[in-house]
Computed example of a mutant assay.
Amino acid sequence: MIAVAGGKGGSGKTTTTLGLARALSRRGAPVVAADADWDLPNLARLSSATNDERNPAADAPTAIDAVQTEGEIRPDRRAPTVLAAPHEPEDADAEQVLGALTEAVPDDTPILLDCPAGASPDAAAPLRVAEQCLLVTPLRRAALRDTAKTAALARQLNCHPVGTVAVRAESVPEGVGDLLGCPVLGRVPPAEPEPLSDSSVRSAYDALARRLVAAHGRDRWRVA
């Protein structure tokens, strides 16, 4: 389980969660992408808005639905299984629900958690249950500072960063990996208004998927 974490809202976590999940699917992996930002959920909405007809936002199962399903979750290898936030999040324990996903999903299936912003108490729940985290950040000074705080929180919770992806970036200067204490695994170029429809962005997420598999999932995930 990988927590996709970063600084403040708008840093690219949701786009990266979905873009990376689709890239892993293109390699034949049965991927689960779950919205762990229960106060500001938009993973299922983004999935629907970017033409994933197999998982329209209104019909996307929630993480609670998934763990209550009899038997294991069996993701489709043709497209990620996107799990929305609960409809009434105040009635559920996020850490307990997200932790149950690891029991409901086959061991060789990548699970990506779209985390809340920053280093708030809400951000701690997915970081506590994930094996490692992937840091997502624009290359602005304030964003890097906030991402460093998130990285420090993750390490305190024993969820060590496997790497960083720089988003909306033309290039990545030296020193970013040293600042955040982990290697830069990818760079996603700027593309508006729908980044996931841009071929250069898809290629960037394909490259990120390849490096993430090499760094974390080669011996544990079912990928081509």
Rank of each mutant, 00 (worst) to 15 (best):
40 L>W: 06
20 L>M: 07
128 R>Y: 04
75 P>A: 01
114 D>Y: 02
9 G>L: 02
81 T>S: 03
56 P>S: 01
152 A>Y: 04
96 Q>L: 11
192 E>G: 11
159 C>I: 10
122 D>P: 11
18 L>V: 05
206 D>C: 05
62 T>K: 01
205 Y>W: 04
91 D>T: 13
100 A>T: 14
89 P>G: 06
158 N>V: 14
66 A>E: 08
84 A>Y: 01
131 E>R: 15
166 A>F: 02
134 L>I: 10
163 G>V: 10
13 K>C: 05
132 Q>T: 15
111 I>E: 06
30 P>I: 03
3 A>P: 11
86 P>Q: 03
33 A>Q: 04
137 T>V: 05
150 T>C: 14
187 R>A: 09
61 P>G: 11
47 S>I: 00
32 V>F: 01
110 P>F: 00
78 R>M: 05
187 R>I: 10
138 P>T: 13
12 G>M: 07
12 G>F: 06
122 D>H: 11
68 Q>Y: 10
87 H>Y: 08
102 T>D: 13
204 A>K: 12
3 A>Y: 09
12 G>S: 12
139 L>R: 06
168 R>H: 08
185 L>V: 09
203 S>A: 15
10 G>M: 07
172 V>L: 03
84 A>T: 09
45 R>Y: 05
160 H>P: 07
128 R>K: 15
49 A>D: 15
223 V>S: 12
62 T>V: 04
22 R>S: 11
19 G>S: 06
81 T>F: 01
1 M>W: 03
100 A>Q: 13
102 T>M: 07
9 G>T: 09
126 P>W: 01
218 R>W: 01
